[in-house]
Amino acid sequence: MTGNRKWNNGETNNQNKKAKIVCTENLAHEYSRRDENGNIIEIVRAIDGVDIEVEQGDFIAILGANGSGKSTFAKHLNGLLYPTEGAVYIDGIDTTQKEKLLTVRRTAGMVFQNPDNQIISNVVEEDVGFGPENLGVPTMEIRKRVLDCLKSVRMQSYRKRSPNHLSGGQKQRVAIAGIMAMRPKCIILDEATAMLDPVGRLEIMDTIRSLNQEEKLTIILITHYMEEVTKADYVYVMQEGKVALKGTPREVFACTEKLTECRLTIPKITQLAQELNRAGLPVPGDVLSEEELLACLKI
């Protein structure tokens, strides 16, 4: 991107920001706890001053322990929650514009945690068609899209089946296809792998990586599994509603102490590399994969 952005005046800077696929400005969200009589007993600031910018085609990961505000943040990107302070722009559109809500939701599709609770229809292909049906896409176009999307998540052979007979990973792939069928520019996965077994988790990671690389979709992966973020372009770590750490996976994993403070643990392989490094072996402390570690050890 243009390096001269820094030297531009504020207005152009703002224009640039709105050109990003996802952009939040000093985003904060508060919700209030009430007692039985409806009196506010506590105001919780779930997110507090988050600035995130995502370029079209990026693969971003947002890491955080339970209660770090990462899910609340995700719901802002889809117009499911509105900011208390600050603003969210999706493809240049402010999410608080009610009349553009459908455009926002179509541009940034969201996959949720529980595979069972986001499949609406009794037949796989009809479920994938649910989004386009809501958008008023013509019948023949829906059928074409559904087939394309099921192919891109490799579920086309299940299209006439009932979702009840699928595994968790397969159901999540159907849910991703359901979002893809709305032709989004960006997919947000809100802990979409948290309820899956390791095989299902791998399936989903493979699927979203290929969507990112082949279809050039922007991916925002929200998770607390460190292994899943190693392939991301950029990582944000959230703690108590704030961005505590950001950088490439390599940069982030190097900050072991800070991560521990955020109640996160680095991937096993990086841990091993750091231990080896401490023991005096010529291994860097920011290894991300087994192959990389092996390559280092062979020298």
Binding site: K75, N78, L80, L102, R105, R106, G109, M110, F112, N114, D116, N117, Q118, I120, E125, E126, G129, F130, G131, P132, E133, N134, L135, G136, V137, P138, T139, I142, R143, V146, G178, I179, M182
Partner: peptide, 24 residues
């Protein structure tokens, strides 16, 4: 489950029967 399903339906642009088309 109903709450989560409602969110998922919202996220997939469900807004009632108005302007809806059918796959079949």
């Amino acid at each position: 489950r109903a709450g989560e399903l409602a969110l998922a339906m919202d996220a997939r642009c469900y807004h009632g029967g108005k302007g809806r088309t059918k796959m079949y």
